[in-house]
Design a protein around this nucleic acid. Structure first.
Lengths: 186, 186
DNA sequence: GTCTATAGGTTGATAGAC
DNA sequence: GTCTATCAACCTATAGAC
């Protein structure tokens, strides 16, 4: 499973061959079918785990906040958890991010349901930020949410472990939301 | 060419077959080889055009500004041009965005050089914004640039022509940079 | 310029031995 | 549980007729 997630993350849906996955796992291609019904079955399992992991990452960081935290603090915590899982912990989420547009429609439909949970969590946090006065009603909340999530999901393409840590990235986005860029990050 | 760009945008590098491209162009697969040496040759041509188009879109909007424009105005103009080309005008840029991570290494290397021009334009604008006082030096400029470009490049995945127009999206990002989200967009 | 035909390779998946 | 062997389908690319 771990091997498969890595291969799917690196190659994408179509270019990840069962032969390569099997080889890297020390097996022959045919042997995989003892564990999975089909390639799509394997892909679905991995991607569902990626979604679940992202969601747990987000929830863990948000739930760890105390009562003094405001809506922006919660968004920053969510960003941190999101990035921590996406960049440091697992290949599953990165595999999901990469393949979500490549996978056959039936699989995408199944994933969409699982994904909605995470989307709703974010939507709720943005609404709370608006209700608490941190986001002016003239902003389109849905566009804003998708722009921020798009920025987060682009990080696997350029993030380098030696560079800016994920906590700083999340803080940068939080500071941006609070004051704009002219204000110091901390 | 236009047909091929559409197919590559919809299917990605590996799943776009020459047979489908040929069919949609009213030909047989073999006939394509009169016009192109190989699939990679075709892909490279299309993706280069996508990069060039994005760059021209950005430059056209930035150059149209008058002298009273500040660094944030220039960034908003760049975002507008970027999005206008990416979402409205052509399939070439969308094909590039989708395939940039899928394409064989040799092609990616060739594209990287062309791409650097656009990256440098953005880097310069962010530096100017910092020098004019719109971005506090405590921000990591490179991370900031990549987050914003990541947000822009995610738009083909969720943008709907009936929804928020590209000019508003760009304004939203500009307002965000200037004042944060608590301030009205206009 | 486009066609037909086909070579040569790879892929996902199955069957049966061990 | 894993192996070997193999099938059928698909792909890129080439060759030669028109």
């Amino acid at each position: 499973m771990d091997v498969a997630a890595k291969v799917f993350r690196d190659r994408g849906y179509s270019d990840a061959s069962l032969k390569e996955i099997a080889e890297r796992a020390g097996m022959q291609a045919g042997s995989l079918y003892y564990h999975f019904d089909s390639k799509d079955d394997l892909v679905l399992t991995i991607m569902e785990r990626g979604i679940a992991g992202s969601r747990e990452g987000v929830e863990r960081y948000v739930d760890a906040l105390d009562d003094t935290a405001d809506a922006i603090d919660r968004l920053v915590a969510a960003f941190t958890g999101h990035l921590a899982y996406l960049l440091e912990e697992a290949d599953y989420a990165a595999a999901f991010i990469r393949m979500r547009q490549q996978v056959p429609p039936e699989i995408r439909a199944k994933l969409l349901r699982k994904q909605r949970g995470l989307i709703r969590i974010y939507a709720k946090m943005f609404e709370e930020a608006r209700d608490e006065g941190y986001i002016d009603p003239s902003h389109d909340l849905s566009a804003l949410r998708q722009l921020f999530i798009g920025a987060l999901n682009s990080t696997p393409e350029w993030f380098r472990p030696r560079g800016v840590p994920v906590t700083v990235l999340a803080e940068q986005l939080g500071s941006l939301m609070r004051h704009g860029l002219a204000h110091p990050v901390n």
